[in-house]
């Protein structure tokens, strides 16, 4: 076995895993926050994520067509794209809740789930319809910004692109901002209060519906940001691209302990790293018997094992106190 090679690629694989992990973490937050307040899985979140990616690509293509893509400083362009993607996905998530989930609040639990799956299909085909009419194509590629593809050589075997750094920094900033909002502000405390006990929260004078909308707004915006970062990092998107990252982010949320915000971040990182290591190391370690295409099987096998021993997830609560 080629140990120097195994060790040599380790930092690179770790970096790839971290990037993928942050992507999953940002998406997983949308699932886990909504689950926290409503105990409901928003299966349309993968499309809310990909809408962010599409709004981002449309903005960049628009800037390109008027010649501003290289005219404006690239950090400004990226910032605008992120804000646009976050705003679009956040508002879309709020609208979906109002139209498709709130009227079903008191229905049996499966009903809003079906509604979410319906919204998911609806949004996929809505994007496809729109892009087909507007661009005559629904597979879109993020236009390249040259600076982003520059690579720094850290060592002889490891290098890192500017866009990878941008993705990591942006994701860290957003996770930090979310942490501050949820744990250090009154409105964040209200979100946690509603998540724990809606009736008691309403007795405090908290407008529960408004907090639920806010939760969808924040979760959606995080998903939209992930969408833009996904496009910047991987380039190609289509209306159905959201499904797999969405499913994996949902898994990451469950792995971390559904409803638990730090858990979603941790779960995302763990899943991203597992996948990256499986993709690079499986064939090396098995002499080619299992290739990189087995990465999902490996990652999900590990997940299943973790969940057998910790069914509440890595950071899930063991017991709910209620004296």
């Amino acid at each position: 076995m080629d140990y120097p090679l195994l060790l040599g690629i380790f930092p690179q694989v770790f970096l790839d895993g971290i990037i993928l992990g942050f992507m999953y973490a940002l998406i997983a937050l949308g699932y886990t926050m909504v689950y926290g307040v409503l105990e409901f899985i928003n299966f349309a979140h993968s499309e809310i994520f990909i809408v962010g990616a599409f709004v981002g690509v449309e903005l960049l293509l628009g800037l390109k067509s008027v010649g501003l893509l290289d005219g404006l400083p690239w950090p400004l362009v990226l910032f605008l794209t992120l804000v646009a993607g976050m705003a679009a996905s956040g508002l879309l998530a709020v609208t979906v809740e109002r139209v498709a989930y709130r009227p079903l609040r008191n229905a049996p639990r499966l009903i809003p789930l079906i509604s979410a799956i319906g919204i998911s299909f609806f949004l996929q085909d809505l994007i496809r319809l729109f892009e087909s009419l507007w661009r005559n194509a629904f597979n879109l590629v993020y236009p390249t910004i040259d600076v982003l593809n520059l690579r720094f050589e850290l060592t002889e075997t490891i290098d890192v692109s500017v866009k990878s750094l941008v993705v990591i920094v942006a994701a860290l900033l957003m996770l930090w901002a979310l942490h501050v909002i949820v744990n250090r502000t009154t409105i964040g405390t209200a979100i946690r209060a509603v998540a724990e006990d809606q009736a008691a929260a309403s007795l405090m004078g908290i407008n529960v519906n408004r907090i639920i909308s806010l939760t969808f707004l924040i979760g959606g915006a995080m998903g939209g940001a992930a969408g833009v970062l996904f496009g910047v990092q991987y380039g190609l998107i289509n209306p159905y691209t959201g499904f797999i990252p969405g499913l994996k982010a949902f898994t990451a949320a469950v792995l971390g302990g559904i409803g638990n915000i730090p858990g979603a971040m941790l779960g995302g990182l763990v899943l991203g790293l597992l996948e990256a290591f499986a993709a690079s190391y499986l064939s090396l370690l098995t002499g080619g018997a299992f290739g990189a295409e087995y990465k999902d099987i490996f990652a999900f096998s590990v997940l299943i094992v973790i969940l057998i021993f910790r069914p509440k997830g890595l950071l899930g609560e063991i017991v709910r106190e209620r004296a």
Binding site: A190, R192, E196, A200, A201, L203, G205, I206, R320
Partner: peptide, 27 residues
């Protein structure tokens, strides 16, 4: 009108201060 519900219904995962501040939420 403030209501102390049956079974107390405090927010177990919030701190004592956060619980008290939630009581003053709309003020």
């Amino acid at each position: 009108v403030a209501h102390v519900p049956e079974g107390r219904r405090i927010f177990n995962r919030l701190t004592v201060r956060e619980n008290l501040m939630m009581g003053a939420y709309p003020r």
